[in-house]
Amino acid sequence: MTGEAARPGPGPDDPADALTVGRAASLVGVSVRTLHHWDAIGLVRPGGRTRTGYRVYSGEDVARLHRVLVYRELGFPLAQIGRILDDPDTDANDHLHRQRRELLEQIERLRRMVGAVDRMLETSASGMRLSPEQQVEIFGDDWRPEWVDEAEQRWGRTAQWEQYSRRAAELSPSDWENVAAATESFQADLAAAKRSGVEPGSAEANALAERHRALMSTYFDCTHAMQVCMGRMFVEDPGFAAHYDGLAPGLAEWLRRVLFANAEANGVAPETATWDS
């Protein structure tokens, strides 16, 4: 049994509101150690004693404890709390009003932060804000809305997918229509360049590669190394290869060569390039 627990409480002849340190600590919700510390620094000292000599807190002492707790909860340091409580020239209400204003400002900052987090959560969860019907209407009858879910399963944990989710959520249906038109125009120009014999590494081919990078940057910050990885995927992934080769025979492999040559011209070695390099 500890010393505090072993001490008897006030006797019948002691003040009715007298509390031992243990009972006072339990009443106000702090530890006995905290009350001993506040006693040692002169912040709140038990002002009475029982007939048997134990120090006890009066009702006035407990009221002071509660005031200390209020100020501490508001962020005041203990030394300042002591000055506020002991200085007769200090207006405690002025301190409280000022702290109230600061708390309201903090609440407003936190409210804005919560709003920002909510928008980020909403964005990362939703990404493209188009219904399946709108997607087909904008991107064409061969578009499959489930491709978005498949893409998230494939790249959902990457920083680029997070960028895509934020940016896609900000695009309106008319914005998506512009993106779809730009993509369709670009792919038509790709097929025309392939059919006309444009050589990878030429100025015209490099310009097409940069148009591709600009289109990808609609969704995330696309580097030349990322383009190299895409070029590999366009050939190795049956779905991408079929799409590009459907525009012009051999277009997938030609596009890979175009992206590789442009990346090399920009200081990226296609043989060793990785998504994060």
Rank of each mutant, 00 (worst) to 15 (best):
M1N: 01
E4I: 09
A5C: 04
P8F: 03
P10Q: 08
P15T: 12
A16T: 14
V21Q: 06
G22F: 09
R23G: 01
A24E: 11
A24S: 12
A25L: 08
G29I: 02
R33F: 00
H36V: 10
D39M: 00
G42H: 05
P46S: 13
T50Q: 06
Y54S: 01
S58P: 07
D61N: 04
R64V: 15
L65C: 05
E73W: 03
Q80R: 12
G82A: 11
D86M: 12
T90M: 06
T90H: 07
D91R: 10
N93A: 07
R98L: 11
R101E: 12
E108L: 07
R112N: 09
M113E: 12
M113S: 14
M113V: 09
L121V: 05
L121T: 06
L121F: 03
R129M: 03
L130T: 00
L130Q: 00
S131C: 00
P132I: 06
P132M: 08
E133F: 03
Q134T: 11
G140I: 09
R144V: 15
V148N: 05
D149I: 06
R154M: 15
R157S: 13
Q163I: 14
A168N: 00
A168V: 04
E170N: 08
S174Y: 06
D175L: 11
N178R: 13
N178T: 15
T183Q: 13
T183E: 11
S185H: 14
D189A: 10
A191G: 01
A191K: 01
E199C: 01
P200F: 01
E204F: 10
L208D: 03
L208C: 04
R213H: 06
A214D: 13
L215I: 08
F220E: 07
D221W: 03
V228I: 02
M233P: 00
V235T: 11
V235H: 05
P238W: 00
G239N: 14
A242R: 08
A248I: 11
L251Q: 08
A252G: 02
A252D: 02
W254Y: 07
W254L: 04
L255P: 02
L259A: 05
F260G: 05
A263H: 01
P270F: 08
P270A: 08
E271C: 02
T274Q: 10
D276A: 13
D276K: 14
S277Q: 02
